[in-house]
């Protein structure tokens, strides 16, 4: 009972009730369990491993006549960022699958929400922790490894900082868009199948639909898949690029707002 004198009731109130504790728990799942090294290994092999393999193969080949000397370097950038734009959203979608649907099915959501926890805290901490986990392990760490390996393969050349920063921002917005979308749909559907199908369907439609309806690139995140490698390669950016960037970025908080609104009406 001595502890009683030292412990104070938590101060978080309103929509923030339970926020700190839940965020700590969710971050712990990313950074305090075996998920940390499993995800690190997975993303390193998948992104940087492919680039390394390609560099080794290029080194062993005789350069084509007239090929620019920085071709391996540029190809490294092209491969890494093209791969990243597909693999990272897919990983983000798969890793967030259990965030709400799984907890609702297992009954742990009802247990957590029988404590002084506000429902917005429950939803937002899921997003923040998954965003932080993927940002750290699949994006920032991989970009850092990529920079080091490109420096190594090119004999001292580094990718330029400004395009890299722009690409990073776009890549993150693209990933957060799909995470927020998945979370929002999780509050409407009870099964993973429909939510995963819709989200992955939207992602992969970006490979086909714009070929039939080019205008869709202007209003969807599909343009990001071309934009990010283009930014790194210093390709010209169309003057309407701000439209899909703005739409995608604005939709992230909109999706989260809808998720919070819907989850507050959820019967557990």
């Amino acid at each position: 009972m001595a502890a009683n004198a030292v412990l104070k009731p938590v101060r978080e109130t309103g929509w923030r009730s339970g926020f700190g504790n839940l965020l700590r728990k969710e971050l712990g799942l990313w950074f305090g369990t075996s998920r940390l090294w499993k995800q690190t290994l997975l993303w390193t092999l998948l992104l940087n491993g492919v680039v390394a393999l390609m560099q080794v193969m290029l080194r062993n080949e005789t350069p084509a006549t007239g090929a620019p000397p920085d071709m391996p370097f540029m190809m490294g950038i092209q491969v890494f960022f093209s791969l990243t734009m597909v693999a990272i959203p897919v990983g983000a979608i798969l890793s967030i699958q259990d965030a709400i649907i799984g907890e609702r099915q297992l009954g742990t959501a009802a247990w957590i929400l029988s404590k002084p926890v506000a429902r917005p805290s429950f939803v937002l901490t899921k997003f923040l922790a998954h965003a932080a986990g993927m940002t750290t392990l699949a994006v920032l760490l991989q970009m850092a490894i990529f920079v080091v390996q490109m420096w190594f393969w090119s004999g001292g050349t580094l990718p330029e900082a400004l395009p890299m920063a722009k690409a990073l921002g776009l890549l993150l917005a693209h990933m957060y868009f799909y995470q927020a979308l998945y979370l929002m749909l999780s509050t409407f559907f009870t099964g993973r199948g429909a939510v995963t199908g819709i989200t992955l369907g939207l992602l992969f439609s970006g490979q086909i639909v714009p070929q039939l309806l080019p205008w869709t690139l202007k209003v969807t995140p599909w343009f990001f898949a071309q934009l990010v490698p283009g930014v790194m390669m210093k390709s010209p950016v169309p003057d309407w690029a701000w439209i899909p960037i703005t739409i995608t970025t604005v939709l992230i908080p909109v999706f989260l707002g809808v998720a919070v609104w819907r989850f507050q009406r959820e019967e557990l």
Binding site: A2, A3, N4, V6, L7, K8, P9, V10, R11, G18, N21, R24, K25, K115, P116, V117
Partner: peptide, 18 residues
Amino acid sequence: RLTARFFYEGPAGAIEER
């Protein structure tokens, strides 16, 4: 520990005691 922290804040030792 997770449950206790929904209600209380304070030194980790006091939470452990509870």
